[in-house]
Amino acid sequence: MLKDPYNIIITGVGGQGNVMAARIVGNMLALQGFYVTIGETFGASQRGGSVMSHLRVSKKTVWSPQMPKGKADLIVALEPIESLRVLAQYGNSETAVISNTRPVYPVGVICGDLKYPTMDELNASLLQLCSKIYFIDATEKAIQLGNPILSNVIMIGAAAGLNVVPMEESDFEKIMSVSLPPEKMKINMEGFKLGKSMTSS
């Protein structure tokens, strides 16, 4: 691991499965013997609002469930513009960003009061704040695999593909098989591998 603690933020919109994604990653890293602290936002903010989970990964100790500003090492955005919102608050010029390309439009955009940026515009904004940016069309790929819900698994795979923290395929399998029936394991493993192939060089 490059840093201790290594700080990951998984962000998205209420209802996207943010909490579950953070727990899967956290459990995978706990299996590797790390102290993992996850701070989650849910409850009222779940209703279509922005949500994020802070993951602190350390060999040494427990860290605060809220990370200090400027300390995020990796941001995984299940929804595109949330990457920018979180990067501006918790990122620095070295932060890596993995972002889904499928928007969930805020009501302000739905009603036409606000404009949602194009992916090119978003990329340009992100590039002013950091340089390691990966856009993943996770939702489209998940629909091709058969269910949009698999987009989170693809995003987790993409995070694993960066190889910055030891997120092993075998650990992913172990964690998922605790809660998933065997018939659903194959498609989830496929999603993980697909995501991984999209960021690993």
Partner: peptide, 16 residues
């Protein structure tokens, strides 16, 4: 830069 970019580039997400 971050404050301006997120204000202009990430439309506010009102709870719904």
């Amino acid at each position: 830069k971050g404050t301006i970019l997120s204000f202009t580039g990430a439309p506010n997400r009102e709870v719904t």
